[in-house]
Structure formats: structure tokens, C-alpha cells
């Protein structure tokens, strides 16, 4: 007989949180990362080392709504659901469309992409430039953290075992006037894991840079973003001068340290990343979206 497996599937989030408070469990949302990570083979259930708690059926974790200018996205919204939702910004939809294939997008969730904390997670560069905040819920109440503080290393996040990621909050994202892009370099098929990805955000007012942010994926253990470098560009006249662009690219050259792996080489990754940055800074026509 197979060994005993404990798994929970409650009707409400409250009950789920109570259980998590009593016991350290493996949370399963869509399961597209968990099932691959613990795969055991034909006819054998995956070997998940802790009691399992299923959450992706909880309607409380699937709501998407606007509150003031902020967008709140339920962590268990699947990619497929987000693509259909008119509140989701176009740039985020573009990033989602590069993820895997329809069947994976029908199961995989935004919360799963964040909590899996892969250096190649395709929604992450954008979530960093949106200054996404994460609402973590437990029996003790809610706590809000910045995504850049939550994701600590590949597969390591700042979650207490009694917490669930309930919502992803994109502050002021529904405000007019910013231009946001996402670029991903990878192979175009179901195994489209990014070799390098890039997200950029810019807002111009009176021909000067009012706000600018950029982040890279898959070139380090977590997303690479530097608020210090971004600050150097605030208030600069737009379009940027060649000298300003060169100096920003040179700054990034210092901080990006990609690795070689089976998908790509460090040199290739760095070259592509810096080209994507230069291209973004050079664009003189921005479409607010």
C-alpha cells in the first residue's frame, strides 16, 4: 500500500488559514510548478514532503478589482482568466502571452509565479517595475510587503508558514500617462523559458522624465533593478541624450552578473540585456498605455 498522504481542500479561505496556522503545509495553487518539482513517474503520486493544501478553487483568491487607482489581483487568478480581464494592463497581458501554451495558462496562477520565485519567472520584471505590493493573509490579519523584499533568492520567499499570498496590488497602475513595455528573449514554443527578459516603465511630463523604472529577469538570482540608477534620470530632458544613455548602460554593465547554463551563456545574456535597455532608453515615441 502507498504511504498515507494528507491533503486539505476547504471551502473557505478562513478554514484554510486556520489549518496553515496549525501545521506547515505545501500550498498547491495551479500545481504547474509543484507537480513538476515533485514528479515521481507513471502511476505514482508526486512525493510532496508536507501535507498538501489546495487553494486554487477559493473564489476569495480569484477576485480582480480596482480600488482608487490601484489594481488588486487575486493570487489564484489563472493566466487565462487575466488575459480575458479588461482591467489587466496590456503590458502584463503581453508578458502572460509569452508564457508556455494555452493548457498551462489555464492552470498556472500569478501567485504561483511569484511564490515560485524563479529567476526566469516571466511576470516578475513587470511586477517589479509596477512596484507591486503583496498582500499576505494569515489568522493574525494582513501584512503588505514589496515584491522586491518578498523574493529573496531562487525559490526562496519571505512567507511565514501560516500565510497565504492573497492579492497582488499594482499601485497607481490605472493612472493615465505611463508607458510600459515587456520584452522576452527565449525560444518560441511551449518550453519558452526566458534567457533574458526586460520590463521598462516611463512617464514623461513637460518633456522631462517624471518617473522611470526598469528591471531585468534571468540575468541574476532575482530580478535586477536599481533605484539609484533610475534616480539619475529623473528630471532629465526627454528624449535622452546619447551621453545619458551611455552612462546608464555603463552603470548596468557593472551590476548585471548573469550565469552560463543549459539555456544560454553569460556573455550572450549580458549583451542582450544591455541592448534591450539601450533600445528602451532610445525610444523617442512613447504610447501611454
Amino acid at each position: 500500500m502507498p504511504e498515507k498522504i494528507t491533503a486539505y481542500r476547504f471551502d473557505y479561505l478562513d478554514e484554510t488559514l486556520s489549518q496553515l496556522n496549525k501545521e506547515d503545509c505545501a500550498i498547491v495553487a495551479g500545481g504547474t510548478d509543484v507537480m513538476v518539482l515533485h514528479k515521481s513517474g507513471r502511476g505514482v503520486p508526486p512525493k510532496i514532503p508536507k501535507p498538501v493544501v489546495f487553494i486554487d478553487h477559493l473564489s476569495e483568491l480569484k477576485r480582480v478589482y480596482q480600488k482608487d487607482k490601484d489594481l488588486h489581483i487575486g493570487s489564484c487568478s489563472t493566466y487565462g482568466e487575466l488575459l480575458e480581464n479588461p482591467l489587466i494592463p496590456i503590458a502584463l497581458k503581453n508578458a502572460i502571452k509569452t508564457i508556455a501554451a494555452p493548457a498551462i495558462r489555464n492552470r498556472g496562477t500569478l501567485g504561483g509565479n511569484i511564490c515560485n520565485a524563479s529567476p526566469a519567472g516571466d511576470t516578475l520584471p513587470l511586477l517589479y517595475v509596477y512596484n507591486a505590493k503583496l498582500l499576505l493573509r494569515s489568522v493574525n490579519g494582513d501584512r503588505v510587503v514589496a515584491i522586491s523584499d518578498f523574493i529573496q533568492a531562487p525559490r526562496r520567499i519571505g512567507r511565514n508558514h501560516n500565510e497565504i499570498l492573497a492579492e497582488i496590488i499594482l499601485p497607481s497602475v490605472l493612472e493615465e500617462g505611463s508607458h510600459v513595455v515587456f520584452e522576452k528573449i527565449g525560444n518560441r514554443n511551449a518550453d519558452a523559458i526566458a534567457k533574458v527578459s526586460f520590463a521598462g516603465y516611463i512617464r514623461i511630463s513637460n518633456e522631462r522624465i517624471d518617473d522611470i523604472r526598469f528591471a531585468f529577469g534571468a540575468v541574476g538570482p532575482t530580478m535586477v533593478r536599481s533605484i539609484d540608477i533610475e534616480k539619475k534620470l529623473l528630471g532629465k530632458p526627454f528624449p535622452l541624450s546619447e551621453t545619458d544613455i551611455d552612462s546608464i548602460v555603463a552603470d548596468f554593465d557593472q551590476i548585471i552578473r548573469p550565469i552560463d547554463d543549459q539555456r544560454s551563456t553569460a556573455v550572450y545574456r549580458k549583451t542582450v540585456a544591455l541592448n534591450l535597455l539601450r533600445y528602451f532608453l532610445n525610444t523617442s515615441q512613447y504610447q501611454p498605455n
Partner: peptide, 17 residues
């Protein structure tokens, strides 16, 4: 699964009761 295309190798049955 409920009319949506999915990969059955990735679905733990408890998730779709």
C-alpha cells in the same frame, strides 16, 4: 476540465474535486 484545456499530468485530483 470544466471545458478548459489542461494537462492531466500536472493535475492532482484533489485540486479538481
Amino acid at each position: 476540465v470544466n471545458n478548459s484545456l489542461q494537462n492531466s499530468c500536472l493535475i492532482p485530483i484533489g485540486a479538481i474535486a
